[in-house]
Design a binder for these strands. Sequence first.
DNA 1: CGATAATTTGATTTTTCTCAAGACGCGTGG
DNA 2: CCACGCGTCTTGAGAAAAATCAAATTATCG
Lengths: 237, 237
Amino acid sequence: MHTTAITGTATQPFMGAALGDGAKVSGFAAAAPNGIETGALGLAGSRVRFERDAEIYAEGDDAACFYEVVSGVVRSSKLLADGRRQIGAFLLPGDIFGFEAGAEHRFAAEAVTDCTVMVHRRRGVEALAARDAGLAQRLFAHTVRNLERTQEHMLLLGRKNAAEKVAAFLLDMAERAPAGDGVDLPMTRYDIADYLGLTIETVSRTLSQLERQSAIALPSTRHIVLKNRAALRRLNA
Amino acid sequence: MHTTAITGTATQPFMGAALGDGAKVSGFAAAAPNGIETGALGLAGSRVRFERDAEIYAEGDDAACFYEVVSGVVRSSKLLADGRRQIGAFLLPGDIFGFEAGAEHRFAAEAVTDCTVMVHRRRGVEALAARDAGLAQRLFAHTVRNLERTQEHMLLLGRKNAAEKVAAFLLDMAERAPAGDGVDLPMTRYDIADYLGLTIETVSRTLSQLERQSAIALPSTRHIVLKNRAALRRLNA
DNA sequence: CGATAATTTGATTTTTCTCAAGACGCGTGG
DNA sequence: CCACGCGTCTTGAGAAAAATCAAATTATCG
């Protein structure tokens, strides 16, 4: 990447308190004074904050923990030797990330915006899942959802042109973070380009072209209005 | 696709006998007279044969069964509305495919070569996995391996050029179906192109170019000799 | 307000695709 | 055994898409 301003506290993957009292709560994090609370998995964990561009973990880091986005946006990415980067996913509140089969994180994870994540210790959860079939099922379901998203992303990367990629991206963001017809993009053009397998210039040109075609409006660089979803969906091949 | 010569018996996803006596056997299929036997998952299933290019299941088919390759090669693919195709994976003996979270198969599966697959009924296995933690674990592990492969594939599709894609493909095939330095490709250039997100012409040109650089030899179209793996790995970025 | 980073736009080059033709390989039937 | 036909593969030429290089513009933050 470019900037990687490491934030004060939460630089390391956080080895603090693990599973506390497992008060089951479905839905999102409920605040608790001591930093131990439960999230979307109905699983106790510790809340940690990361500043924009902070590394949550690096590729190859020990995968002792996995995470859940509470607020903000996280990107999961992988680098080639010469610095080319592929962003595998943008993670939004409720998304689980960093749960690995092996001992290491195979992607890096960084904060796209200032964000809060819930940290879960893998060992404890694995033991718990062995007894709690429901938890095991939810973990499995999350992994499968991940797989399905990745497969969809693969189709986009392999077989779509620039306009189709950008349209698919906008529709996906609009669906996942609903706010009427407006989409707030928390990430830079660099991030979008590395997510779509394009350059920033091509992303920018494609957005301008969609604007000229009145499919979208660009009131500001990070805020996009979907003026004609049908047109975008037609591009969505 | 183009040709889809449907074979005599095994055209439909096969609704026959499900789980029989679950004699645990690790390793590959052991022959049994009645067609019920156990495979890599240590799971009973029925052996079914498919001819080259036969459809094992279509995108959107009911996902009542999942499969394991016993012999031959299978491709898993997805189509865009206008016929563009992305091959998500080539499945080799021992690979599990078609295990879905939802009710439907999200990809199609077809036989690349004549092949034998083991069919497992999902319902039965889910019930079994609820009691057999080891089985649940193996299924989970397979899903995760799938995810990891898909993520690797994503990197290739998004950020690699034609030479890098072809080199990565050859090295992967050589590793998964080891036969010294020779690689037998069971699939057409069309299949390779749709796997790598290229056209057949670009695949062909790239192979010729690698041959001119003495990285490989092409004694016949479907047989490739890796003459210089280091060179290929250098391309593997 | 000024500095720096992010974004857009333009000109040009590179890569890959498309269209077209020819070569090869393989199975069938004479 | 050989010729024919058909699908597959290779190669070439030109077109299109996207990347690269470069500059101008806009946003952001102290």
